[in-house]
Design a protein around this nucleic acid. Structure first.
Lengths: 115, 115
DNA sequence: TCGTTGTGCAACTATTCAGTTGCGCGTCGC
DNA sequence: GCGACGCGCAACTGAATAGTTGCACAACGA
């Protein structure tokens, strides 16, 4: 795989991740998982009368597709758990962009001083 | 302002931020700004034939609304620059969620060992 | 002054998407 | 076995969104 292809693929992954995070329902459910530990769909949907269980289910699948949570069947329940590794990848991505900007500004400053 | 209101407001901000990042066009433009330094709209739209200048403009405004970039008029050009501070806020948010999860797991483990 | 360049505003369209509804199926408890 | 509970699948609908188009306007250069 070429270097450019690599970048494109990781970019697509980052887009998927941030898009999953960029929704109030999903972010609150993620926070609920974060400080409540693993939980089933119905559990995540209760105290959330604004939406059907099916609605919450769809959102959970978006989070799963982004790799932010992992699901597993336990009896008749579907239990979801956070995947902190993916969160770390998100942080890493933001770091890269920020540091790239710092470098660009440094180069720009250098260029101005030279001329 | 109540504590709960505070949380809700910061959550809304985080949602806005991640939603802005969760789009291929916006993320690539952000990366372009990151390692190319400040640039005007036309500059950001060129070599990007898949979209009109107006399309790119809208995306830039979404990024601006999320606080990720700052725009300023320079002559007849509108120049956009990255705001790394906002990127740091995003990282901070992800850290909070991840650490909350670690704590939850620790509590869970403790609870299991106790019983 | 005149052509060019960079931009902003507003309206339109087509597509996508969120969320609901209705159903059927496995699983647990009595 | 039988009811209740938790869940998955598929189809539908209204609403939001992305992107375009057409225009007008200010700034720069010759």
């Amino acid at each position: 795989m070429t270097w450019r292809k690599r970048v494109e693929r990781s970019l697509a992954g980052a887009v998927l991740l941030f898009a999953a995070l960029g929704d109030p329902t999903r972010l609150t459910r993620l926070q609920r998982l974060s400080d409540g530990g693993p939980a089933s769909i119905s559990l995540l949907a209760e105290r959330f009368r604004a939406m059907t269980r099916q609605g919450v289910r769809k959102h959970l699948h978006v989070l799963a597709a982004a790799g932010l949570i992992n699901g597993s069947r336990q009896g008749r329940e579907h239990v979801w758990a956070l995947n902190p590794k993916r969160l770390a990848e998100g942080r890493r991505c933001l770091e890269v962009i920020a540091s790239g900007w710092d470098d660009a500004l440094a180069r720009l400053k250098l260029h101005v001083e030279e001329s």
